[in-house]
């Protein structure tokens, strides 16, 4: 464990909690892409199946359980409890254009042609594009609530910190996973436009406008 991975995980956890609390407290999921949240639930489910097969550490197991729990709780709040506030018209990204190519790629390019490894690879590739429906929705509505921008900032920051974690691990441990690294770079690049606006526009005060 190194400082980049720890802060990355905490940033990811913060993002997940921020979103869940925002929906729960405001009793509304306006401006939130339910499709992205479904994709994240799929990402965690397909990546953390090893919860059933291997124990790495208490930290590892706890975080995985929390991620999966919060992901499904968020999907439940969006599509069941606060369904009336779900903005389906603006959440119109065709996720099949993501899932199908990602599924195909994970069968073609992976480290090992075993079910668990292919599912892990699928989850890595899917996570790199899972935020697109949310970014697409914001570009359609032209704005986002301030709390949603903080959620996106933490979410984007987590994988950027993981990039530093992989540099650290390559240098100190000789560990690197090309699939995770390439997908992580793609994932972080997708946030660049948003990061630029988040930092320059300083719109902590007013809604995020494209």
């Amino acid at each position: 464990m190194n400082v980049f991975r720890l802060t990355g995980d905490l940033s990811h956890l913060a993002a997940i909690i921020i979103l869940l609390l925002k929906i729960w407290k405001s009793r509304s999921c306006a401006g939130i892409s339910g499709k992205s949240q479904i994709l994240f639930a799929i990402v965690f489910t397909t990546r953390y199946l090893d919860l059933l097969t291997s124990f790495i550490s208490l930290y590892n197991t706890c975080m995985k359980v929390i991620y999966i729990g919060c992901a499904y709780a968020t999907v439940y709040l969006i599509y069941a409890k606060f369904r009336a506030t779900y903005d389906g018209n603006h959440d119109s990204f065709r996720v099949e254009f993501l899932v199908v190519p990602v599924g195909g790629l994970s069968v073609l390019i992976n480290h090992d042609f075993s079910p668990l490894e292919i599912l892990w690879t699928f989850s890595i590739y899917l996570e790199s594009v899972a935020i697109l429906p949310q970014l697409f929705m914001i570009s359609k509505t032209g704005e986002a609530e301030t709390i949603t921008t903080h959620y996106l900032f933490c979410l984007g920051l987590y994988r950027a910190l993981y990039l530093f974690n992989w540099i650290w691990r390559f240098y100190f441990e000789g560990f690197f996973d090309m699939i995770a690294i390439v997908a992580g770079v793609v994932q972080t690049v997708l946030y660049c436009d948003f990061f630029y606006l988040y930092v320059t526009k300083g719109w902590f005060s007013r809604p995020y406008r494209l």
């Binding site: 991975r5 291997s54 590892n60 991620y67 892990w120 000789g174 996973d177």
Partner: peptide
């Protein structure tokens, strides 16, 4: 570089 595959990352 050599690749160590241990899934200890989240």
């Amino acid at each position: 570089g050599h690749l160590i595959k241990h899934k200890d990352e989240l």
